[in-house]
Design a protein around this nucleic acid. Sequence first.
DNA 1: CGCCATCCGAGTAATCGGATGGCGGTGCGTTACT
Length: 479
Amino acid sequence: MDEAQLKSELQKYFGYSAFKDGQLEPIRSVLGGKHTLSTLPTGTGKSLIYQLSGYLLDGIVVIVSPLLSLMEDQVAQLKFMGEKRTASLNSMMQFEERQRLLSNLDRIKFLFLSPEMLQNQVVLNQLKQIPLALFVVDEAHCISQWGLDFRSDYLFLGAARKALGNPLTLALTATATPAVMGDIISSLHIDGDDLNVFEGAVDRPNIYYRVAAVPPEEKNEYLLQLLERYPSPGIIYFSSKAQADAVAFMIRKRTGLRAEAYHADRTNEDRITIQHQFLQDELDVICATSAFGMGINKPNIRYVIHYHMPNSLEEYVQEIGRAGRDGQPSTAVLLYSETDYNFKVKMLQGDFPNDFAIESVIKNKAVNPDYGSPTEQTLLLHILRQRLTKEEAKHFIAARRELKQNLLKRMKGFAETDTCRREYISAYFGKSSLVKPVLCCDGCGDEDPPLAGEVSSRNAVPTTGAPHWGKILSDLFLL
DNA sequence: CGCCATCCGAGTAATCGGATGGCGGTGCGTTACT
């Protein structure tokens, strides 16, 4: 199908007259019968890729999604567009409801489910009975990020694909390093000869990067200064739920800003409310752990501050990537402290099963649910499922530990580099060409973007020589 | 890692010193309970 025909189908199904950047190529690839891996920033219309492809192929489209809330969002969106043949299969459903859906799958066009649900034999058997147009893995980096450490069912998507007869597959993610892309492809057991990979840009030219070395005890005061300076709304990321709570409280006390904490200890109801309020501009600041963000597509987030550094540069880039979706100047600030790094190193070291745990799991053929963190348990489960020998298991754990430590070291490298941070990220993601924006990062000696209406007293940033606002914008749009 | 909070015994009436231990975070689904 040529581009003109696809455009007319786009018009027919969605009412759009043109594709956004990065949509057309993966659609043509899928329609050409090729497995496809596409990295495309969130908010640039990733879901349209499988939606339009799905309409133009016979059979059901199965979309594997990491979060129930994402599934619900997608179902609601499709139904809003008038597509009634949409459902998600999950644990929220009543038994009868689920039975009814499973026996009527032939009436469904878009089915959303979790990787865990695909482990269910009944579900797999029902799916085998009907023609499968496309197997979609949304947020596919979760395979690499969670498979071994957190949600082991992500590693079984390859087996599920095989059970379903190796269907045409589309993997979508916002950002992936070459290593993560390799993990995705090999874990899904995709034949490389039948694969097309489309890589979107990683760089976000309208985000200015800055790292500030701030000792832990000075972070709160420093943060308050930043909040005075930066326009809302924004996100502040933490490595600890308690600290996210505490700082949200402090911000409410000491500023006029509306701040809320968001993490896994909040009730489902609270989380929905907070997210909704944030999207409606009824909150200025979200103090969040990594629980917040996936699927959030709010255009006007002006800053993302990291109170603690994440465990990897992938996570960092994903989290700061939530800023400035509208293309307007935005800021990413990392409050870096070597104490934090040392703490993370220590935590990481304790987060792997020791030899005794490895040996007893192999001996008992079961994981003791009372032993260790979720990460340790997932790793032990993997050892068990792969039927590793003692030696293999120890090597596996050692390699895993080294990998995680390296990810953390690269994150530290980013924080400590005195050269261009944008180049550092770009190189990390294996990109060769990079066009630097006028306002790049502190490593390039650039000052923070001047902010509308800013009265700068305390920070006393000299504005002489700083590019004019209008020039900054025009430079951005030329990129 | 290095910093706290907590505990504990000493030995005196209410604290003190030293030791100890703890210290992240991500979500499905199922099932056994209140």
